[in-house]
Amino acid sequence: MQEDSNYLIVVNDEEQYSIWPSFKKEVPPGWREIGFEGNKQACLARINELWVDMRPRTLREAMA
Rank of each mutant, 00 (worst) to 15 (best):
E15N: 00
E3L: 05
S5G: 05
A45Q: 13
P56A: 01
W51C: 09
P56L: 00
L8Y: 11
P28I: 05
E26A: 15
A42V: 09
G35I: 03
P29H: 00
L44N: 15
I9D: 01
A62N: 11
R55L: 04
L44E: 14
G38Y: 00
E14D: 11
F36H: 09
N12Q: 06
N12C: 12
W51H: 10
R60S: 07
I47G: 04
R60D: 06
W31I: 08
K24S: 10
W20M: 14
K25F: 00
I19Y: 06
Q16M: 08
V10Y: 05
P28D: 11
Q41A: 14
W51N: 07
Q16K: 05
P29I: 03
P29F: 05
R57M: 12
S22Q: 14
Q2R: 10
Q2E: 14
W51Y: 11
D13N: 15
T58K: 14
G38C: 00
V52C: 11
W20I: 03
V10M: 04
V27E: 14
E33P: 13
D13H: 12
F23E: 04
Q2Y: 09
A62I: 01
R57S: 09
L8F: 13
D53C: 10
I9S: 06
D13Y: 11
V52E: 15
A62P: 09
I19L: 01
E61K: 12
Q16P: 04
I9H: 02
K25Q: 07
V11M: 09
E3M: 10
N39C: 11
N48T: 14
M63Q: 01
N48H: 15
S5F: 08
T58C: 14
L59C: 09
L50P: 13
E37I: 06
P28F: 06
D13T: 10
D4R: 12
M1N: 02
N39G: 11
I34C: 01
I9G: 00
E37D: 05
W51D: 15
D53S: 03
E37W: 07
S5A: 15
L44H: 14
S18G: 13
Q41C: 05
D53T: 05
A42K: 13
C43I: 15
L59Y: 14
P29Q: 08
V10Q: 03
R32M: 14
M63P: 00
I9A: 05
E15H: 08
M1V: 02
A42E: 15
W20V: 13
E49V: 08
E33N: 12
M54S: 13
A42W: 04
W31K: 02
E49L: 09
D4G: 07
A42G: 06
D13E: 15
T58N: 14
P21V: 02
N39D: 11
E49S: 06
Y7L: 03
R55C: 09
V52F: 08
G30T: 05
V11P: 08
F23P: 09
E37N: 04
I34W: 01
G30F: 05
R46I: 07
R60T: 04
K40Y: 08
K24Q: 10
R46C: 06
Q41R: 13
V10N: 04
L50K: 11
R32E: 00
E14L: 12
R32A: 06
D53E: 05
C43N: 10
N12G: 11
N48Q: 15
